[in-house]
Design a protein around this nucleic acid. Structure first.
Lengths: 140, 140
DNA sequence: CAGATACCGGTTGTGCGCAACTAAATTGGG
DNA sequence: CCCAATTTAGTTGCGCACAACCGGTATCTG
């Protein structure tokens, strides 16, 4: 399980660097709308699922309330999101996309595809990368 | 270039999540020595290259002085690193690993291998991941 | 040589990530 | 039914990342 070329070290650093490079690739388009990449990820969940509790957002994004609470507060201040206490369970907070938040989908919905096209990875390479990263996530 | 299954979005998020999961995997071992993952990366460069300017550290880690300066100051406070002005070019600052910093290599030098073994990726999968991430980095 | 330009490291300000903790609400067991 | 344990969101504190900017140094040009 893993040879002795120091590849493990390389892969860990590559993940760290690639992740930052990817969010940097998103930055210009997102900046134009005053969004950050994590905020964009949260909006994508809301576009896909509609009103969602903070808890479920956390499960989808692998983030806890310590990260999400201030992030959602900023999205709310920007007018893209509305928060209200759950009625059945008053511990929960349901996050609703607003008109403004929903409209962002028109401009930013296909951003991942545009970013991917700027890459010169082939279709097949993308699929293999997806598969390998899935295997990685399954075990760490 | 990239199909329409939404794979691009998945891969971007996977990189973001995998990077965080990887640093989380390093955390217990690094915590035991009071280090963070970026600090560990900086130390690895110093172990490999010896005394290095802030500028070169930045090139190796893809980080700017805004990130490195405070990080190195903390490493210096912890006693793992010493900083001194370059003699030839007084703009530069050369970062030297101290005895303490060098000794960390005994405990943490093979950490990437230990982390990689906790994964159940095969040798070959690791190589393919390395290759795909290299291709990604080349273009973004 | 002198002034403009570029380079190097540092500082400031903002927004994550994450650990540790808190307050309020819910749930479960006796 | 009541109290302990759990769940949920929020807050605080710290360390990155990164943009924007600064002061000091070196280099390039005329």
């Amino acid at each position: 399980m893993v040879d002795s070329t120091g590849l493990e070290q390389m892969v860990c650093f590559q993940l760290y660097a690639a992740s930052r490079a990817m969010t940097a690739a998103y930055r210009p388009a997102l900046d134009a709308h005053g969004l950050t990449y994590p905020q964009y990820l949260a909006l994508r969940v809301l576009w896909h699922r509609g009103p969602t509790t903070v808890r479920d957002l956390g499960h989808h994004l692998d983030l806890d309330s310590g990260t999400l609470s201030p992030l959602l507060k900023r999205l709310e201040t920007a007018g893209h999101v509305r928060r209200e206490r759950g009625t059945a369970d008053e511990r929960t907070v349901v996050v609703h996309p607003t008109e403004s938040g929903t409209r962002l989908r028109d401009d930013l919905g296909d951003l991942p595809r545009r970013i991917a096209c700027a890459t010169d990875l082939t279709d097949d390479e993308f699929r293999r990368l997806h598969h390998l990263l899935s295997r990685l996530r399954g075990t760490t």
